[in-house]
Simulated scan of single mutants.
Amino acid sequence: MRIDLSGKTALVTGSSQGIGLAIAEGLAAAGARVVLTGRNEDRLAEAAARLRDAGPEATTVAADITSDEGHARLVAAAPDVDILVNSLGVFGARPALEITDDEWRRIFDTNVLTAVRLTRHYLPGMTARGWGRVQYLASDSAVAVPVEMIHYGMTKTALLAVSRGFAKAAAGTGVTVNSVIAGPTHTGGVEDFVHQLVPGDLPWEEAQRTFMREHRPTSLIQRLIEPVEIANMVVYLSSPQASATTGGALRVDGGYVNSILP
């Protein structure tokens, strides 16, 4: 399958590293102009340099989009896009009864409300033009909520509802809206998370195997997913070939969720 996104502009949030950067690279390789955003200017510059080898030169917008000021800066720099990928997300382990009100608010504002606000801004332009793609990076934690971070799981469940709802709002317009359920994925943040849960100073490969065996035993691939594997699904959903896929929650979870449906 040859995916050509030439002439399209894609905005990927949280794209200075990890899954967001892998998604940005995949979209650029397919020919899209990519807008990278994150809070760290140096990381964004490094990410943009990586994209130059993949496709059209990237635009960077350094902003904390959880704030009104940061949101305004981003949409002023990129007033219209054809593809919106909401991949910004934070997580962390915390005993359920120790999660404070401030933590609940912070993770909801970061993982959910930023995506809602950007969708609210960009979706009208997409529907007016008769083409667009909106995606939300959800997680296996949306349907298999982990006891060590139920606040994170709540935000990812919320994204499934947000995605389905906005897909209905865009019905019949040529715009598709979907969520991608990512399974346990190999990023720097997840490496830190694994070492929080796996005791001892184990080499990374052994720590990863122990983590999967003890904390994610239903995974059918029995390894962490690589970010590019998530990006492959996002790039497909961004393509003209995915024109009949909307309102869905598509899994790239390595078979971790023990269910036929999400």
Rank of each mutant, 00 (worst) to 15 (best):
N232W: 10
M212Q: 00
M233I: 12
Q241E: 14
S239W: 01
V235T: 10
V228R: 15
E226I: 03
T218W: 10
V234K: 09
P240N: 03
S239L: 05
Y236A: 04
N232A: 15
Q241P: 04
V235F: 00
L220P: 04
S238L: 01
P227T: 11
I221F: 06
L237I: 13
I225Q: 08
T218I: 05
S243G: 11
V228Y: 07
S239C: 02
Q222L: 09
S239T: 06
P240A: 01
A242R: 01
V228T: 13
E229I: 11
E214N: 11
R216F: 13
P240G: 01
V228D: 12
V234Y: 09
S243I: 00
V235Q: 02
S219Y: 04
P227Y: 14
E229G: 12
S219L: 09
P217G: 02
I221L: 07
R213G: 08
I230D: 04
E229D: 14
R216W: 12
I225H: 07
Y236I: 03
Q222F: 05
P227Q: 13
P240C: 02
Q241V: 02
Q241Y: 15
P240Q: 09
L224P: 08
L220Q: 15
M233R: 13
S238N: 06
L237W: 03
S238K: 02
E214D: 15
R216D: 03
S238G: 05
V234R: 12
A242L: 02
L224H: 11
M212I: 11
S238E: 05
Q241W: 15
E226G: 04
A231V: 12
T218D: 12
P227I: 08
V228K: 15
V228W: 06
T218C: 09
L220T: 11
V235N: 06
H215N: 10
N232L: 09
R213N: 13
A242G: 05
Q241G: 08
L224C: 10
P217T: 05
I225F: 09
E214Y: 09
S238T: 01
Y236D: 06
Q222E: 14
R223H: 11
I221N: 05
M212C: 00
Q241A: 12
R213T: 15
A242Y: 00
S243A: 13
E214M: 00
H215W: 13
I225L: 14
E226S: 05
H215D: 08
A231I: 12
A231L: 10
L237V: 12
R223W: 11
V235A: 00
Q222C: 07
Q222M: 09
V235C: 01
P227C: 11
S219G: 08
M212A: 00
P227D: 08
I230F: 04
V234A: 12
I221G: 00
S238P: 02
Q241F: 14
T218S: 14
S243M: 04
Y236C: 07
P240I: 06
V228A: 14
R216Y: 11
T218Q: 13
R223M: 07
R213P: 07
R213Y: 10
S239M: 02
L224S: 07
A231S: 15
E214S: 03
P217I: 09
Q241I: 00
A242E: 02
R223Y: 08
Y236Q: 10
N232E: 10
V228C: 04
M233L: 15
V234Q: 10
A242W: 02
E214H: 05
L224Y: 13
L220D: 06
